[in-house]
Design a protein around this nucleic acid. Structure first.
Lengths: 209, 209
DNA sequence: TAGATTGTTAATCGATTAACAATC
DNA sequence: TAGATTGTTAATCGATTAACAATC
């Protein structure tokens, strides 16, 4: 199951969330075209993704939601769970904190870091805020594997370096500044400004015709 | 200049920001491999993107930063500027508000919407917060073209419908729930949970080998 | 049975990268 | 000149979609 395409991984994560909602409504089975409709993609793509993880449905009832959900969990979650931290408790950091607060068992935010005296020592969304100076220590103590960067752009490079040095395995960078990490650290970057500029471009371009 | 690949648009937006920083440092020219290094991509890709927008550098000095920046502006900005609103003034909404506060001229957030009485009427990052009930009216009055959705998942579908009805041209959806829009509305969705789960997957997968 | 569905291969589309001629 | 660089085509890689056999 190593060689799942990146895009398939993303969609599996989304399928699972949609499936959990269906389960909650008491639905037991679902067709590929139903999942497709929820996600606004094609039914073929759904079937192909599901094929890639080796699950098979039935012709009459489609996919068993519980089974499929469980299998996706086996594929994308780690058995033992993964500890995560956020660095930078501004609005974005808090937003992420709240999103995850108390939700997942396999993926849990167990620490946040900031330099603001008023924040250090307090709890946000169930998670204690530590001083940035303790980053290395806390990451090791709590066995944190993933760091989410929500600091201002100016500090991005420095924080990335600190996270890498502390032995983090993956970084999710929400600052608008690309960062440098060694090959053995998985890096995912997302830039809100770029997304908005992209929307603006296509809005403009569409107006033209 | 219509048929620029999506990925090229995204990178142009990022090049521009990097170039502006270089300009601010007094640099006047830059080589493709320098841009590449900042963005962690290849020099070929940078040159190809620049070729696609029809700019040419010089062999000895590379690209003129000011000229290139200006050209990227001509390509991705609209002449008249575009008005934007955020819907949902939670932490994420505020984060976005702050990001953009007072920065761009071509892309400006001119309104935000919420249902919280304590927020309506106040200003966040220079932008007035209106009640959601006035969404349709304000969008038309202020000629808002793009809506950024930062509401809880449960309200995603409803807000999207309201935005579309108000005549919005583009939506940037930050709720974890995919929304439905007609073909003439440009939709960009981003899901933080999926991104984190993706990082977790690759962290886990990398551990395996 | 006819119609709807799944699973899967092959074809297509889109994006990146390799290769290299041209130039200073 | 030799070395570094740009601009561009062709090849490759990755992802989506079309097509369709099999099944209930």
């Amino acid at each position: 199951m190593r060689n799942l395409p990146h895009k398939t991984i993303e969609r599996l994560s989304q399928y699972r969330r949609a499936l959990l909602l269906c389960l909650a409504k008491g639905k037991t089975h679902i067709f590929s075209h139903e999942i497709a409709k929820i996600q606004h993609i094609t039914a073929v793509q759904v079937r192909r993704d599901i094929m890639l993880i080796g699950y098979t449905g039935t012709l009459r009832k489609g996919y068993n939601i519980q089974e499929l959900t469980d299998l996706i969990g086996i594929i994308i979650d780690s058995d033992e769970g993964i500890n995560v931290c956020t660095v930078g408790l501004g609005n974005l950091g808090k937003a992420i904190q709240n999103y995850f607060s108390g939700k997942r068992t396999k993926l849990s935010i167990v620490a946040s870091f900031d330099i603001d005296k008023n924040k250090v020592g307090k709890r946000y969304g169930d998670v204690e805020c530590f001083h940035l100076d303790d980053l290395n220590k806390i990451i090791k103590e709590k066995d944190i594997k993933i760091g989410i960067m929500t600091v201002p752009a100016a500090q991005a490079a420095d924080i990335a370096k600190k996270l890498v040095k502390a032995g983090i395995a993956g970084i999710l960078n929400y600052t608008p500044k690309p960062v440098n990490v060694p090959n053995n650290v998985y890096l995912e970057e997302y830039d809100m400004i770029t997304s908005l500029e992209k929307v603006a471009f296509f809005v403009k371009t569409h107006d033209d015709d």
